[in-house]
Design a protein around this nucleic acid. Structure first.
Lengths: 177, 177
DNA sequence: CGTTCTATTTATAAGAC
DNA sequence: TGTCTTATAAATAGAAC
């Protein structure tokens, strides 16, 4: 018997599953290439396969192109964005559209270019890692803020810094040394 | 004549191109769904189409799922990663692998859960926006550092803060008010 | 094992409505 | 202009090497 009807469910047979994965992965990339070519539309496909060596497969193979499409994806605002008053997040929210417009207008300036050499050491970090950095900075600010407050520094500055929630950030184990 | 052989090149006829785009976009998403289902592999597809209303189409439609796959993509290190001594980036780099392991091990703990309510107001921001925040924090630190330095504060703290490159961050126009 | 080979299913370019 | 139809190209599951 050849070519049984396709049941759309997880293939339990490991061998058959891997064979199908290899075939269809190739097919999916080809379809992405065709659609992108025929209609001149930027497309990227990311396939995560923990069992394979490379683990992560992308189309197109050029990481920069994938990066560009992801950046565009990121710059599109969510519909249901929760508001929160008096946080740095809110303040930035007000500038969100402007930031997005900048991103679109400056597509020729890659992200790396925009942030110049400052950005170079952070470009490779993902969102979680950037958040780790924010946590660290937040900790530093918390310490510094306390110091300044005890020195009777300018209140407007400390007020802004205070808008950062600095609680429940303990025990992260970063910079304990 | 029906179903001519397919020439893999840009379709100049606008009407025909749009028809093909709609059909093949649907087909591509279906293929992604099938591969993902049959082999239980996380996949995401991002299609950018400036001519359409929504501009950006994704599969799966759930933004959080797409976000997760992109985060994984980002967490895979580039081959040619440039090093830079004495920056926070370098310090974090040493912990990069550990962070990644944590990310993979704690897949059940969503990012939002991990960062608790502190994270809530930042979860909706993309990488560029997080970088903006870093820039702002950097600026704050720069100001505060100057103040502390002039007050002869603890040197170890100021040394750490100083490791942050704070130059060439001018003119961003954030927090000018 | 990995490759190649069909029988079929599936996708889809044009046409019809 | 958008659906529906249909002939044909393309993808691919399982078998055969």
């Amino acid at each position: 018997m050849e070519r049984a009807k396709l049941t759309m469910e997880f293939i339990t047979n490991e061998k058959a599953r891997d064979t199908t994965f290899q075939k269809r992965k190739k097919g999916l990339k080809k379809k992405a290439y065709e659609l992108s070519t025929l209609c001149d539309v930027p497309i990227c496909v990311i396939i995560y396969h923990c069992s394979s060596q490379s683990e992560l497969e992308i189309w197109p193979s050029n990481r920069e192109k994938v990066r560009k499409i992801i950046d565009r994806y990121n710059s599109v605002p969510k519909e249901n964005q929760q508001k929160r008053a008096h946080t740095l997040g809110d303040i930035l929210e007000g500038r969100k559209r402007k930031v997005e417009q900048d991103l679109f207008k400056q597509q020729k300036n890659s992200t790396a270019t925009k942030y110049s050499n400052w950005h170079a050491s952070f470009d490779s970090f993902d969102k979680d890692q950037l958040m780790k950095m924010l946590l660290i900075l937040d900790e530093r600010l918390k310490t510094v803020r306390t110091r300044i407050a005890s020195m009777k520094g300018s209140e407007d500055l400390t007020a802004l810094i205070s808008s950062f929630p600095s609680d429940n950030l303990q025990g992260l184990g970063l910079f304990q040394s």
